[in-house]
Design a protein around this nucleic acid. Structure first.
Length: 647
RNA sequence: GCCGCUGUAGCUCAGAUGGUAGAGCAACGCAUUCGUAAUGCGUGGGUCGUAGGUUCAAGUCCUAUCAGCGGCACCA
């Protein structure tokens, strides 16, 4: 007999080898019907699997969040069966669960197109209706390999080989179809339900390696019920509406064109937004940093010294002049900053020396990587390099962290992920130096997590560090749930040495400084893209490129509208005057669509009373107030967060 | 870079089976002075991404190329 404890803390005895199915039935017939799987000591298992030991058991039903994983996983299996039923000879590879759904990678001569999706979906619904049971078998490696080889499933053979020794080779059957799978699964295909949808087709490399063959991937989404599916699809639609590429056009912020793939034409309003951001950042740097500006184009020789010509060349734009000198357009600011550091003798008294630049860098990114403002070929980094001693390193990292989090907070980002990337295979510097650097960074990471009181999630990316040192990566989430790396702190024991940078220490000896590369927004272009999506274009007043429009109702109010506009401008607000011969309805509609935060409506009445009528973006309310009150409240609201007194 | 899809007026999109382009909005003109999401009438605007090719004839078919979109890989 075995003892199983239940979530309500009751303990029951069962015969050893009873299945989750039996246990569910022992409680009630209805529970057995609803049961999808069990969790033993928190680990999901098949309902049919014999339970041989004491443990804590939970019966997993549809409402359990963990059920989703099973539903999605099984939907992937059913999709694979459907595809093989429709197109025999298609090889199946892997089909994992991902956020919001699942995918399966296939090898097929002619890749799938979106027109295939409804066909596959229909077949999937048939398979689900057959309601075949999932049954597990354990095969020998030889048996599995022979079977898949005979079926022409060469990728599956490779997958069998990849299973670590000592682990069972598990096969799951559903009706006549079977797949190599770790499990667990639902009880039968019918339990998947019908709340799923195939979303898109895509190419994907076998095992995620671009040297390998390209497979064809089908993405799907699956949910516990129809309502959740609808909510998800609706969320996607909403996300699409706030896509920064769409809003950028609608709000007349910037554009791209064919001659300049990946390079931004900032329009007046977009540039104003850009400046609002850089002005803010400049204020945040004023106390601790010195701002510099290093050249855009430098001789190849300098990039050879820095190591970029060797490590980064395929990403660099370069040009040869008439007299055969090769110059490269800077992809990073660090070599330039080291030149400034090196110019003249540096004393230990100057350290830590924090050198900042809003550096425009150019990188030849792969064409397929370009994505609106998020991924471009020329962008501006809010970059800085801290030259310091090793003893100062930890404190500098913490100071940077504090600044980064404080900046993010001002933009409304409270949930930040910080990851430490450790030494990569290809690297410079001794292991002892890496040990030390990683030890320092690891300690800092812990402090970051503790200081945040759990708000900041941390993690480690093994082997993802830069070739010159470990780094922290700060990640934000965009409106569609995609994660974007913004800030970064990178420790560098390499570049000062390559350039022979040193300072004179208190004992009169030359010493090499440690260099910390850091960016807060990362790419200002990307950061603005994230802001556009995060605010859905409804910028807070202090950031908004256009803060107000004064709209006159009739030409009789034009003169007063001009006065109001002049006063608002004088108070430091940015806005426009709309005296066009149009109805107020038309003006309100147009300015609302353009996402102007404040519409100041003035007519005859307002002119007589020296008042205004304010309509805010996103609201239908009309708020009449005196002109003086309007100005003072708008000026107050337009004060950037770093200049507010309560901070 | 790789796989798939797309590319027609400033924007959104129509244009079976090849017969030399159309709508709505926007723009411009005229009228309208109208109190919070589209006033009416009129006018102009496109070498159909680019370059070749097939054809009596190509936006429509073929080839190449560029750009964009969705992924993969890469990455701030």
């Amino acid at each position: 007999m075995i003892k199983l404890s239940f979530p309500d803390n009751s303990i029951r005895e069962y015969e050893a080898g009873s299945s989750g199915f039996d246990v569910a039935l022992s409680i009630s017939k209805s529970l057995q019907k609803k049961a999808l799987a069990v969790a033993i000591d928190g680990e999901l298992r098949d309902l049919a699997e014999p339970i041989t030991q004491d443990g804590a058991i939970e019966i997993i039903t549809r409402d359990d969040p963990r059920a989703l994983e099973l539903i999605r996983h099984d939907a992937a299996h059913v999709m694979a069966e459907a595809v093989q039923e429709l197109w025999p000879g298609t090889q199946v590879t892997i089909g994992p669960v991902i956020e919001n759904g699942f995918y399966y990678d296939f090898k097929r001569e002619t890749p799938f197109t979106t027109e295939d999706l409804p066909v596959i979906e229909k077949k999937m619904r048939q398979i689900i209706e057959r309601n075949a049971k999932f049954t597990k078998e354990v095969w020998s490696r030889e048996q599995a390999k022979a079977h898949f080889a005979e079926q022409g499933e060469h990728y599956k053979v490779e997958l069998v080989d990849a299973i670590p020794a000592g682990e069972d080779v598990k096969i799951y059957r559903q009706g006549d179809w079977l797949d190599l799978c770790r499990g667990p699964h639902l009880y039968s295909t019918g339990q998947i339900g019908q709340a799923f949808k195939l979303m898109k087709v895509a190419g994907a490399y076998w095992r995620g390696d671009s040297n390998n063959e390209m497979l064809t991937r089908i993405y799907g989404t699956a949910w516990a019920n129809e309502k959740d599916l609808k909510a998800y699809l609706h969320m996607l639609e909403e996300a699409e509406k706030r896509d920064h590429r769409k809003l950028g056009r609608e709000m007349d912020l910037y554009h791209f064109q064919e001659e300049g793939p990946g390079v931004v034409f900032w329009h007046h309003k977009g540039w104003k937004l850009f400046q609002n951001l850089t002005n803010y950042m400049r204020r945040r740097l004023a106390d601790d940093y010195q701002e510099v500006n290093a050249p855009q184009i430098l001789d190849k020789a300098l990039w050879e010294t820095s190591g970029h010509w060797e490590w980064y060349r395929e990403n660099m734009f370069s040009t040869e002049t008439e007299d055969h000198r090769v110059f490269a357009i800077k992809p990073m600011n660090c070599p330039g900053h080291v030149q400034i550091f090196k110019h003249g003798l540096r004393s230990y008294r100057e350290l830590p020396l924090r050198m900042a630049e809003f550096g425009a860098v150019s990188r030849y990114e792969p064409s397929g990587a370009l994505h609106g403002l998020m991924r471009v070929r020329a962008f501006t980094q809010d970059d800085a390099h801290v030259f310091c001693t090793e003893e100062q390193l930890a404190e500098e990292c913490l100071k940077i962290n504090e600044l980064i989090l404080s900046v993010y907070k001002h933009f409304g980002f409270d949930e930040v992920v910080v990851k430490l990337s450790t030494r990569p295979e290809k690297r410079v510097g001794s292991d002892a130096v890496w040990d030390h650097a990683e030890e320092v960074m690891g300690r800092v990471l812990k402090q970051i997590e503790e200081q945040s009181g759990g708000k900041i999630k941390t993690g480690i990316l093994e082997g993802e560090g830069a070739f010159y040192g470990p780094k922290f990566e700060y990640t934000l989430r965009d409106a569609i749930g995609r994660e974007w790396q913004c800030g970064t702190t990178q420790v560098d024991f390499n570049l000062p040495d390559r350039f022979g940078a040193f300072y004179v220490d208190s004992d009169g000896e030359k010493k090499e400084p440690v260099m910390v590369h850091r960016a807060i927004c990362g790419s200002l272009e990307r950061f603005l893209g994230i802001l556009i999506e995060s605010f859905a274009g409804h910028f807070p007043l202090w950031l908004a490129p256009q803060q107000y429009v004064v709209a006159a109702i009739t030409s009789e109010a034009n003169e007063y509208a001009e006065q109001v506009h002049a006063k608002l401008k004088k108070a430091g607000l940015a806005g426009e005057l709309d005296l066009r011969n149009e109805k107020i309805n038309y003006k309100v509609r147009e300015h609302s669509l353009a996402k102007v935060p404040v519409i100041v409506v003035v007519g005859k009445r307002e002119a007589e009373e020296q008042s205004v009528n304010i309509r805010r973006l996103g609201s239908k309310d009309q708020t009449p107030m005196s002109l003086a009150d309007a100005i003072s409240s708008l000026v107050d609201e337009a004060t950037p967060p770093d200049l507010r007194e309560e901070d």
